[in-house]
């Protein structure tokens, strides 16, 4: 179980990385923390001709408060962000979800943007990005663009990122002052891929629930407030709309069941912590 051969480029600047991606096209992959890509390389599921290591690029190692949002560069590791002072206040949802991402031993190297690029439908960080209405910042030699998270994820490990583009950063709007947040996840074991993960954002007038692990991408929906009797039906509709499927670890019915129960629970929890 060893990777197939590939070239390796340690990019020192963004330009260098973008040029390499431009040249190599579909044959290149960006290497950041490597915690999603390396298993695929080792199993020879992925066999790129070139890996472009972007971790040496200083410009990508920035976390910044930008216009009411947190901008997280592509070089930022999950553990580093977890340790950021004030994260729980500014980004309560992200702070709640990060401990569920893999294990301490993988968060130490895995990046947030890498998880977003990988677009696993069960992953926590894409879910939070969608729940918070965040954005993905893409860049290629031809220029930069910004995509809303909900449009970015298009399916199983599929995104609107073009082959020669790379994720430069993601931005997550800070929690609004009067809002509450909650995150819960059910997996077989601690640290496993989520069977169902739910993230809720609730303020005085609106509630939003995002669900991961059920559809082929994280999906968010505006729902009635937990106090509203209409929530029951809305959750039922939402659960079915995700087109859950059976797999080894859980049935589709179980996943829908968790969307209803866990979904309600996180909405209630979010509403409660707002109060």
């Amino acid at each position: 179980m060893k990777p197939a051969p590939f070239d390796y480029l340690r990019a020192e600047t963004l330009e260098e990385a973008l040029e390499a991606l431009h040249q190599a096209g579909t044959e290149a992959r960006v290497l950041a923390g490597g915690q999603s890509l390396l298993p695929m390389l080792n199993m020879r599921l992925a066999r790129p001709a070139l890996l472009v290591d972007i971790m040496p690029i200083a410009a990508l190692r920035e976390v910044a408060d930008a216009a009411g949002a947190l901008r997280i560069g592509a070089g930022i590791r999950q553990a580093a962000l977890q340790a950021r002072p004030g994260l729980a206040r500014q980004q309560p949802l992200l702070a709640a979800a990060l401990p569920w991402v893999g294990h301490a031993q993988t968060r130490s190297r895995g990046t947030l943007c890498g998880s977003v690029a990988h677009a696993d439908p069960s992953a926590e960080i894409p879910l939070v990005l969608v729940a918070m209405g965040g954005h993905v910042h893409l860049r290629s030699r031809r220029g930069a663009r910004r995509v809303a998270a909900e449009e970015f994820f298009t399916g199983m490990m599929a995104t609107t990122r073009a082959e020669e583009e790379m994720i430069e950063a993601i931005t997550l709007p800070h929690a609004a002052p009067d809002s509450g947040h909650a995150f819960r996840e059910v997996g077989r074991r601690h640290g496993d891929f989520a069977i169902t993960a739910c993230a809720a954002v609730v303020d005085a007038r609106s509630a939003r629930l995002a669900v991961g692990g059920v559809a082929d991408r994280p999906v968010a929906r505006a729902l009635p407030l937990p106090s509203d009797p209409a929530l029951e039906d809305a959750l039922e509709q939402f659960a079915w709309s995700l087109e859950a499927r059976d797999d080894l670890h859980a049935t589709a019915a179980y996943r829908r069941h968790l969307v209803r129960r866990l979904g309600r629970a996180v909405l209630e929890e979010a509403a409660a912590c707002r109060a």
């Binding site: 199993m43 599921l45 298009t154 399916g155 199983m156 490990m157 082929d216 499927r245 797999d247 080894l248």
Partner: peptide, 20 residues
């Protein structure tokens, strides 16, 4: 085969994606 043994979790979503 291999992909079913080691990435079964992803198959269904991948199939849906491809068809679409």
């Amino acid at each position: 085969g291999k992909v079913a043994s080691i990435a079964g979790r992803l198959l269904d979503g991948a199939a849906r994606l491809v068809i679409r």
